[in-house]
């Protein structure tokens, strides 16, 4: 069973106590944006076989949304971090680099 640590309440939560929220760090294009940008926001997904940044909700705990860096091929978890950020913090990026040297993700890497 997948276990993630909620960065807000600090609890280790089983996947049955969490709700998956799909890809993280998506640019939320609003009114006035082009059709291409709006399509990318609503539907464009990296869906990688490997490193994936994703949103989770601590639904049977503190209720907060947080982010996780996880591998979709091995289910390895590289770390979790608070959601109020546009890219993963340095310690998470470093933890990924140790296990997946040369990784990249959309606009940051």
């Amino acid at each position: 069973m997948l276990v993630l640590n909620c960065p807000y309440c600090g609890a280790d939560k089983d996947e049955t106590e969490l709700t998956a929220g799909g890809e993280a760090h998506i640019t939320r294009s609003g009114p006035g944006s082009s059709d291409e940008d709006f399509e990318e926001y609503l539907f464009g997904r990296v869906n990688p076989k490997g490193l994936h940044f994703e949103r989770w909700r601590c639904s049977a705990g503190c209720g907060k949304w947080f982010h996780a860096a996880r591998c979709t091929a091995t289910l390895e978890v590289f770390g979790t971090y608070k959601a109020q950020t546009t890219e993963p913090p340095k310690n998470i990026q470093d933890a990924i680099s140790i296990r997946r040297p040369g990784w990249s993700w959309r606009s940051f890497s």
Partner: peptide, 13 residues
């Protein structure tokens, strides 16, 4: 399963 994966097994629950 609720989350992306390529593992060809899935969650026991």
């Amino acid at each position: 399963d609720g989350y992306n994966a390529y593992t060809q097994r899935g969650s026991f629950h």
